[in-house]
Structure formats: structure tokens, C-alpha cells
């Protein structure tokens, strides 16, 4: 297995994507995850080495405790590094960075030019974008915990997740379980899924971002047919696909994510609904996993939280990716939509 991966990585470095020999045996979910993560690491390392000579940029920090100018490395330093210059509180509580008052930037994404930096936490005056990033991260982590929770005999094919809609009351991931045509999760199974989620969250994983070429993305998601179909349309804009990694789980998503899974506080996986596809579509049915979560700094009594979980149990009205006969271009999952 390792030998094959090394061979694979060598060929990638030599940019011979098309000539990669297919792996002789079918990969289990676990092995696929490891492989994806390994490829991610290699690509990240390659991109870091490509930066070359280190140039300096000026980052003007605006905010608490006092405005200051930081001199950081271009293409290497992240807003997280800027926060480390300020204080531990900044490091722990900032979830998102705001550049020049307009662009929302991930905390662990390298800065590329001189800019004005504001660190956003969950109690900022205008937290809409931070909340959206939070919801998006929770969807990603829901996919992660679903791949881990099932036994090896049950293959899990992640399909996609739509853009974050907080007012709907729950975050979603649409997952294809080909070997389970009729599955209704019992309460115990939902608790187990929530426990897996919490385990993942308590590992304090950083959400790393990487922009990757189309071929490499296709290579990474080779075992997942749904993603393989989505990648060409995602990469249509500029040939790049943005990937996020949390621990070993890699997924495709366009938008900024929060800085660390430790910022997720209370979380519950509330329900799983079955989505039936139309006659034309290739995918016959999807399972919509739903959950609700709150950031760590929020203190809410158990009754209010129970209201939220009860509401999240109802089927989320977000559009299903498979249940319409029109062509797929109408559907815009989180990964595809325009802005980078």
C-alpha cells in the first residue's frame, strides 16, 4: 500500500497525472481516507516549497487591544500567526479573519499581500459570515464522522452539502449508502453518531485549506463517484478546486471555515432522512444527515437547546441534489458556487 502511494506521489511530482497506474485492489473507506490525506500532505508540502524566496508583507491589524502593524512573510504567514503575535485569547477565540474590511479569509490560509486585518470571533457586531463559516465547518465534520462511524462492511459515499442556511435550523450532509437501501437510524445510533462528532471535535483539529488542480482532485477522490462527477463543474471557473482537511478527512468546499474544531461547543446529530431521486438521475437515493451545533462560547440552558434539536429533527427544506429532472447545472452545492 505504502509502496503504491510512494509510486503515485513520485508520478505526481513529475506531473504525469494521466499515466498513473490504477491500484490493483479496491480500497476500503479507511484506506481511501488515509490515501487522500497523504496526497493532501504531499501537495501542501510541494506548494510550500514552491513559494521560493521569502518576501515580507505589512499587515495592519485593527482591533483590540490596540492597532498595530505586523511584518509577516508573504505566502507563508497566516492570520493565525498574526493572532499569535497578539495574545493567547486572540488565538483561541478568533474563528475568521477579515481582510481590508471586505474579504473573509480562513485563519490558516497564507496571506499574499499587504492588507488590513481584523480578527472575527463569534461575538462580533456583524457575525453573519462567521456563523455561516461555522455551519459549513459543522457540515464538513458531519461528513467526516459519518465516514468513520460506519463499519468497514458499509461503504460510505459522501455526495455533497448545500450552502449554509442557519435559519433552517440544521446543517446537512447528503450521503449515499449503497448497501443500505432502507435504513432508519434508532435513537442509540444517533447518539453514537453524535458521540463520534464530539470525539472528532475534541481532538482540536485545525482546518487546513489547499487549492489543488483538477487532475489531482480527481485522483484524490477517485473512489467517490459523486465527487468525481462534481469536480469538473467546480473547476470550470479557474481550474482549481479548494479542499479542506480536518485531521484525516479531506473534502471539497468553496467557503471559509472556522479556525479550529475546538471552537465547536455543543453538537448533536439529530436525524437522517431519505431523499428519493428522480427517474433520470443516476443516484437513486441519498440519506440526508442533519445536525445542530453551537460555538463553545455560547451558554444555553438545556431546554432551549432541546427546542433547537427538536426543530432540527424535521426534514431540512434545502433543495435535494437529486430530486429534479432538469440538468445538474441548476443545483449549486456548497463546493461549486462562484466566489473563491
Amino acid at each position: 500500500m505504502k509502496h503504491q502511494i510512494l509510486f503515485l506521489s513520485k508520478t505526481i511530482f513529475q506531473n504525469h497525472y494521466n499515466k498513473v497506474t490504477p491500484l490493483s485492489r479496491f480500497l476500503s473507506t479507511q484506506e481511501a481516507i488515509e490515501r487522500r490525506s497523504h496526497l493532501f500532505t504531499l501537495e501542501k508540502k510541494r506548494q510550500a516549497e514552491n513559494v521560493g524566496r521569502i518576501e515580507k508583507i505589512e499587515v495592519k491589524y485593527k482591533g483590540v487591544p490596540n492597532d498595530c502593524t505586523l511584518v509577516m512573510n508573504k505566502g507563508i504567514s497566516t492570520p493565525y500567526d498574526c493572532a499569535r503575535h497578539l495574545s493567547e485569547w486572540h488565538v483561541d477565540t478568533s474563528a475568521l479573519a477579515l481582510l481590508d474590511g471586505t474579504v473573509y479569509w480562513d485563519m490558516h490560509r497564507p496571506l499574499t499581500e499587504n492588507c488590513t486585518l481584523e480578527l472575527q470571533n463569534f461575538t462580533v457586531a456583524e457575525p453573519q459570515q462567521v456563523n455561516k463559516a461555522f455551519w459549513r465547518t459543522c457540515s464538513l465534520l458531519l461528513g467526516a464522522c459519518a465516514t468513520v462511524a460506519f463499519k468497514d462492511t458499509v461503504p460510505v459515499q459522501l455526495h455533497s452539502f448545500p450552502g449554509p442556511d442557519i435559519r433552517s435550523g440544521s446543517f446537512i450532509y447528503d450521503i449515499d449508502l449503497p448497501t443500505l437501501p432502507d435504513w432508519k437510524p434508532t435513537n442509540q445510533e444517533l447518539y453514537t453518531l453524535s458521540a463520534e462528532f464530539v470525539k472528532l471535535v475534541r481532538q482540536n483539529l485545525i482546518l487546513e485549506r489547499l487549492e489543488v488542480g483538477e487532475e489531482l482532485a480527481l485522483e484524490m477522490f477517485r473512489d467517490n463517484e459523486h465527487k468525481t462527477k462534481q469536480i469538473p463543474s467546480i473547476a470550470r471557473n479557474n481550474g482549481k478546486v479548494t479542499l479542506y482537511r480536518a485531521g484525516h478527512h479531506v473534502d471539497i468546499s468553496k467557503g471559509p471555515m472556522i479556525s479550529n474544531t475546538a471552537q465547536v461547543g455543543r453538537v448533536t446529530v439529530t436525524s437522517v432522512h431519505k431523499l428519493i431521486g428522480s427517474q433520470d438521475s443516476d443516484v437513486k437515493q441519498l440519506y440526508r444527515f442533519q445536525g445542530v451545533a453551537l460555538p463553545t462560547n455560547v451558554v444555553l440552558n438545556h431546554f432551549a437547546y432541546s427546542i433547537l434539536t427538536e426543530r432540527a429533527k424535521k426534514l431540512n427544506p434545502a433543495r435535494s441534489p437529486i430530486s429534479f429532472a432538469t440538468d445538474k447545472e441548476d443545483f449549486e452545492p456548497e463546493s461549486i458556487a462562484a466566489k473563491v
Partner: peptide, 18 residues
Amino acid sequence: LVCKECGHHYESGRLCGN
């Protein structure tokens, strides 16, 4: 705790020094 207005530290139950 950390004061939200000025970012300095203060003891809980008291006013922020800064």
C-alpha cells in the same frame, strides 16, 4: 477574563482595569 472592549485582562466580578 479578557475584556471585550479593550482586550486587557480583568478579574471576574470586578471592573476592567484599563
